[in-house]
Amino acid sequence: MPVAEVARRVGEVPDPELPMIGLGDLGVVESVAVADDGNLEVAILPTFLGCPALPAITASVLEVLARCGHPEGRVRQVLAPPWSSDRISERGRAALAAHGIAPPAAPDAPEPVRLGLGTPCPHCGSLATRPHSAFGPARCQSMLHCAGCQETFPLMTAM
């Protein structure tokens, strides 16, 4: 199987904590390439250094590599370039919003982006939302409250 096809399949592996989005759209797959020893190597960028999903991600990717005929394939964690929420693709942002998670501010948003300011509610679209808690159900999310529909919803933190 060509490397590009393996890379596509690796990119489609769902994130364990955000299963509506694939690793590719989340921007955590830095590269899929043949290493010096001839084995396929996938470089993964951790979203957070203490992300508890990393072992699960590694196991899922190894499984895909094995299924694609690369049982000797490896997963390597790399820190450069640093992962940032700017790496989430347009398709990924749409998938998050469709599942009630407000996507992080777009890469070209003016800095600094204060938590949740003017974040549209993923349920009703209202801009009358305010921060509720800077920390949410997963490390990469904070909680906001919508005054429009009274829902509390997670926001993927811009990092």
Partner: peptide, 20 residues
């Protein structure tokens, strides 16, 4: 409970830093 989440999430990050 929000503060419980905050302190434990901060601790989780710090464990990640320590591991590295």
């Amino acid at each position: 409970i929000e503060e419980d989440l905050a302190l434990s999430n901060i601790a989780l990050d710090l464990v990640g830093h320590a591991r590295t």
